[in-house]
Design a protein around this nucleic acid. Structure first.
Length: 206
DNA sequence: CGGCCGATCCACT
DNA sequence: GTGGATCGGCCGA
């Protein structure tokens, strides 16, 4: 069951970054279905967050999609090498976004391994923001995709995540953001949590 | 138009 | 543990 647009409309991006943990991120790209459970996210809080691309209200062709209503994807190229996938959240005009930093593969494992040029399913296949986009086939073509569409979307996985299941820390790679680099906006599922929750197959790589 | 640099990853030592 | 890859966006001139 795809998450509906109402899910993404909250202006509390920190709340949504936590809510996205344990959900299932899926793509159907090049005719192949792949997906995994979201295990790590980061919140980027609109125009007041120095780590955000939309800081200070910067609205350019790249950041434009962040200013749209929640429920779209924001994909951009990082370090000239990696695509990073974000979920745009909040009302129209509020450029909040949640970066998806890691997943645990559950669907299309063969294709995921192929795209990642790996032979065995281990943690290192999808445990980084650039890795998971490669694994799921996400590129700039998916920038601006509606998450209610048939290319990239998010579903309930059936997992119940509570506050005590979530590790909170500061965000990675945002040292340039001054004080905002210390904001507790990084969220991870606790180690072995998917084991304990009896999550779908292939969880154990987390 | 030129220069700088990044919400990263991997090979190599 | 470290440095190179690699290129679009952004800013200043």
């Amino acid at each position: 069951m795809k998450l509906q647009s109402s899910f993404y409309k909250s202006n509390d991006v920190v709340y949504l970054a936590k809510q996205l943990l344990g959900k299932s991120l899926k793509t159907n790209i090049d005719g192949v279905l792949t997906g995994g459970i979201i295990t790590e996210t980061e919140a980027y809080a609109g125009i007041t967050d120095r780590a955000s691309h939309a800081y200070g209200g910067r609205r350019t062709s790249r950041t434009e999609v962040m200013f749209h209503k929640g429920g779209l994807s924001y994909v951009y190229l990082c370090y000239g090498v990696h695509f990073l996938f974000n979920v745009v959240t909040g009302e129209e005009g509020i450029p909040h976004a949640v970066l998806i930093r890691a997943i645990s593969p559950i669907i299309g494992i063969d294709e995921i391994l192929k795209r990642r040029k790996k032979s065995k399913l281990k943690k290192d296949v999808t445990d980084g923001p650039g890795k998971l986009t490669k694994a799921l086939g996400i590129s700039l073509k998916q920038n601006g995709s509606n998450l209610e569409g048939d290319t990239v979307w998010i579903e309930e996985s059936g997992l119940e995540i509570t506050e005590t299941d979530i590790l909170i820390s500061k965000r990675i790679g945002v040292d340039y953001a001054g004080e905002d680099a210390n904001l507790p906006y990084r969220f991870q599922l606790a180690p072995n949590l998917l084991d304990k929750k009896n999550a779908p197959k292939f969880w154990s790589v987390v």
